[in-house]
Amino acid sequence: MTVKMLRFVCIGMLYLVLGCNATGTWCYEEEECDPSTWPEHFESCGGNSQSPINIVTSQVQVNPNLGPIQISSSSFPSSFVITNTGHTVEVVLSSQHVLSGAGLEDDYLLAAFHLHFGSSPFAGVGSEHVINGQAYPLEIHFVFYNTKYDNLSDAREQPDGLAVVGVHFEIGYENYVLNGLISALPEVAHKGQSTTLAIDLREMIPRSVVSYYKYQGSLTTPPCSENVSWHVIRTPAQLSQAQYEAITSLYRTESDADEQIGLVNNFRPFQPLNGRTVYKY
C-alpha cells in the first residue's frame, strides 16, 4: 500500500468513529438496542435536529440561491477498502473527491460512503430519507468533511464539520456503475471482512446536480451528531432486482457465528422535523 493510499485509508477509517463504532451497543432490529433505544445511550440521538426525515414536497421551500451541487474528482480509477461493519457495507477512499456549491461556504472532502437498504426490493422500506412517506429500496450516503479542519476527527466536533449527499435507488434497469461494488460483495459477506475494490468512483458520484433537497440534520447512526448539512438528490437512480438481491445477501454476523443473520433493514426510521426548513434547488 502506498503512503498516499495509507493516508486516505486512515482518514476514511476515522469515519467509523463517527458512527459504526460509536461507543456503546446499538443495532437496527433487536428490541434491546434498536433505534428507539439510542437516545438512552447516546444523548445527541434524542436531539431536535435528527436525521433522516420525511421530506414532504408540498412543504419544501425553493431556494434559488443555493446553486448546483459540484463534486470534483480525481482523474483516475483508484483502489478502495470495502468493509462489512455488521451495520452496513462501507467503502473507504484513497483518492480525492471534493464537494462544493449547494450553499456551502467551504469545500468538503469525501471520506467514505455506505449503504442503507431493506430486505426485499418490494418490501416498501430500505432508504432512510423518505419522500412524502415513500421509501426507496436503497440509499447510498456519501460522507464529506469540511476541508478547513485537519481531518475528519476534528471536523466531527464542529457545527459546520460534515456534509452528506444521499442518493436513492429504485428497481429498474441494471446499473453498470454499481457492478464493481457488487462484484466485491462476496468477499465481505460477513461482519469484519474487508477487501480492496478498484473502481472509477467518478462514475458513481454525481458530478453536478441541479435538483436536490437540503436541510440541517444529524448523522443517522450513533452518536447522531447534529452537524450535518444534508443534500438528498431529488431524482432516484436505478438498479436491477438481481443487483439488489446481491446487496441483501450479506450477513451482520461473523463467518464463524453459530447463527448467521442477514444484514438487512439497516435504516433508522425518519425523525421529527421540529420546525426545520427543507429547501430545494
Rank of each mutant, 00 (worst) to 15 (best):
V3R: 05
K4N: 13
C10R: 04
C10N: 05
G24N: 02
G24I: 01
C27Q: 03
E32W: 07
T37N: 03
T37H: 05
H41P: 05
S49R: 09
I55Y: 06
Q59N: 15
V62W: 14
V62L: 14
V62Q: 13
P68W: 00
S75C: 00
V81E: 11
G86H: 10
T88K: 02
Q96F: 09
L109A: 06
L109Y: 02
F122W: 15
A123T: 10
A123C: 15
H129G: 00
H129Q: 04
Q134S: 03
Y136C: 06
N146L: 10
N146M: 10
N146A: 10
A155F: 01
R156F: 05
R156L: 04
Q158N: 05
D160V: 06
L162M: 15
H168G: 04
F169S: 07
N175M: 04
V177Q: 06
L178H: 02
L185A: 11
A198K: 09
I199L: 08
E203Q: 14
E203L: 13
M204P: 01
P206T: 04
R207T: 07
Y213S: 01
K214I: 00
K214D: 02
Y215P: 00
Q216R: 05
T220H: 09
T221W: 02
T221K: 03
R234V: 05
A242T: 13
A242F: 06
Q243T: 02
L250Y: 07
E254R: 10
E254G: 09
E254N: 06
S255G: 04
E259N: 05
Q271R: 09
N274K: 09
G275H: 02
Y281Q: 11
Y281P: 03
